[in-house]
Design a binder for these strands. Structure first.
Lengths: 198, 198
DNA sequence: TGTACATCAGTGAACGCGCGTTCACTGATGTAC
DNA sequence: TGTACATCAGTGAACGCGCGTTCACTGATGTAC
């Protein structure tokens, strides 16, 4: 990571700086406050310097969203590794919700911005997250025919929690516990399904 | 519903017209396309005529979001009434997801716009929806201590499905079936929990 | 090692745009007498 | 029933703003010889 050589004409790593600044703006002031000009301003650079690194505003957004998915995946993977045996899946969900709460603006951009519908870069990064979930589901749901619906259901559950918490539609002083309680309910159901299956 | 008297200076019911037009813009062109000026334009009225009916742009948004919650509640109530015995809860979820898919822009405004955080009008309308869910939960989950977590979990699940479907993160050619499958999974869990409780 | 030159990453001024909002106004409506 | 007048719901022009983006430019960097 090349430190910006102060005093020089060139910035050092303006692309990276723009991405970081955009993240900060998103989380602190929300999507409406995120403009290319504001990013340039905070980077201490002229209004169109970012155009050397991003074709247009959308390209910046795509970059930030992609970064977000990669970070989310890393956070989830770390939580899964650190989890107590048997609680890996719950840990994934908790990390997911935690990330959303720590980066509400970014999370919103990642999942709700129109640019995410067309950018393959974002889709690829998002696929990393879902793959992580799918792998864990494969471990805890032996019945293959149940896996897809279980994965979709739990992902939706956790995503719904994240979104509702972010938007103050749900309040909890202990989101980790909330994820645990709700996900455990579904986990029990999966055992019930297996029992029924026998 | 007073029809606009064509040819007269006065519009008839500009307030209502603005709300309807705003809804349409939201669903057809998204939140970014929704401006007071565009609403006025489509209503065939001068740019500041809406100010006779809304203090500012936020007031219009609050009005639209409130309308949305009332409509959502009505749609859910109707679905609940029409449902086959035992499937009322699933019907509520299906109606919820269906409404989201039919009105993606509006749904997004209702749940994700900052103005929703401060407007008591919106909170009140949203409470109507959650009350509907809570009432049904009370019927199907006899164990009172389980009700809250069950209500939160299922709401999140259904909300997550809605959001992910709207944003193309999940694809399904039969959303009703998807809701049924995922919610049923949780319903089975509730029976499992009851069984365990005995 | 030194120099010429292509390329890269910035600058600063300017563009047109649509927006929210305000102003002074006027035509339409409805009510008191 | 007719009229004076207050009020309501519009008009049209204008404001300042920040935005995305483009232009012609220049200083810094790195490479070929």
């Amino acid at each position: 990571m090349p430190e910006p050589r102060t005093g020089t004409y060139h910035h050092g790593d303006l692309r990276r700086a723009c991405l970081d600044i955009a993240r900060t703006i998103l989380d602190e002031d929300g999507e409406d406050a995120l403009s290319l000009r504001e990013v340039a301003r905070r980077a201490g650079v002229s209004a169109n310097a970012p155009y050397r690194h991003f074709r247009d505003k959308d390209a910046l957004l795509v970059g930030v969203a992609t970064l977000g998915f990669e970070e989310l995946q890393a956070a989830m993977a770390a939580a899964e590794t650190a989890a107590a045996p048997g609680l890996e899946f719950v840990a994934l969900g908790q990390a997911y919700v935690r990330y959303a709460q720590e980066h509400p603006g970014l999370f919103h951009l990642m999942f709700s911005h129109p640019c995410g519908r067309s950018a393959p870069e974002i889709s690829a990064a998002a696929a990393g997250v879902t793959a992580l979930l799918a792998a864990r589901v494969a471990v805890i749901v032996p019945d293959e025919s149940q896996r897809q619906i279980f994965a979709t259901g739990t992902w939706s559950l956790v995503h719904g929690l994240a979104v509702l918490l972010i938007n103050d539609k749900l309040t909890s002083d202990d989101p980790d516990q909330l994820v645990l309680d709700t996900v455990i309910t579904v986990l029990q159901s999966s055992r019930a399904v297996q029992a029924v299956g026998k």
